[in-house]
Amino acid sequence: MIIDSMLPALVYILIFPGFLFLAAYGLFLQWVDRKLGAVMQNRVGPPWYQPAADFIKLLAKEVIVPDACDTVMFKVLPYFALAAVVTAVLPLPVWTDAVYSFQGDLVVVIYLLTIPTVTFFLAGWSAVSPYAVIGSMRVLTQLFAYEVPMMLSLIGPAILAGTWNINEIAGFFAAHKALMAAQIPALFVALIALQGKLERVPFDIPHAKNEIVGGQFTEYSGRLLGFFYLAVDMEMVVGAALVNAVFLGGTLGASGAAGLAVFLAKTLAIVFLLTLVKVLMGRVRIDQMIRFCWQVLAPLSMAQILFDIFLKFRLQ
């Protein structure tokens, strides 16, 4: 009896849409990102198996733990990051409706996605090297810059749909496709903030290699580094899936294989946009980023919320 109810849960968490799917698709998206970026820069780019090869290579390498650091924290943190990301995918619609859906799961997903960032901070902080410490301070500073605009941008669609359930928001937009167009400013804010969450150009400040070498991951090596990188790749899938569910109507009402195809196509499109942003810009300074996030992104998403409230009254 217990096994009967446990088995699907384990499949969901470990295989689909959990760990295995996320890892495979995350590595694939990393390749898509690198390949697209390379083509845009007139280069050839890596072969399709490169991200997997990098990951396997890191698994095989020696793990060096610095003497001065907090050994337990140092070793445990990558797994925390991975677990948080895997959990965050469960309330998101991937092929049909989400596997675990409840009122308020939007907030839960946002908080689960914050956990990897906090582990990055702790990883750098526990490693004591000056580069890692500066990197982790930057992680935290950056978190305060993009987190608020990101949350505000997600609130708009939720207000319009009148629910805090991601599945219902996706269903709402799948039913009212015209309203999707009204969410473009919030979508823009969410994509830029996602770029900050994933620590990619122009917001790759925490691990800007020309300034502080490896940033928060400077002292990490081998398996532990590999899992951190994997967590970042999986975060990209979850982030793209979240944007897809909240702004673009999830699977658009399709289910099964068709739903999965819609999901893959739309996340690929989102990754294309993220790559474009990465290729088009240089890295900004941390003070410039904070100013941009609070002076441009946050007011923009506030305006979107007001507009959505207004729109909701008009529709009623």
């Binding site: 083509v39 845009m40 820069q41 050839v44």
Partner: peptide, 14 residues
């Protein structure tokens, strides 16, 4: 932007 998008269809320099 347009330079970058144009390179999607160009021969690679490598």
């Amino acid at each position: 932007l347009f330079e970058v998008l144009g390179h999607l269809f160009k021969k690679k320099a490598t």
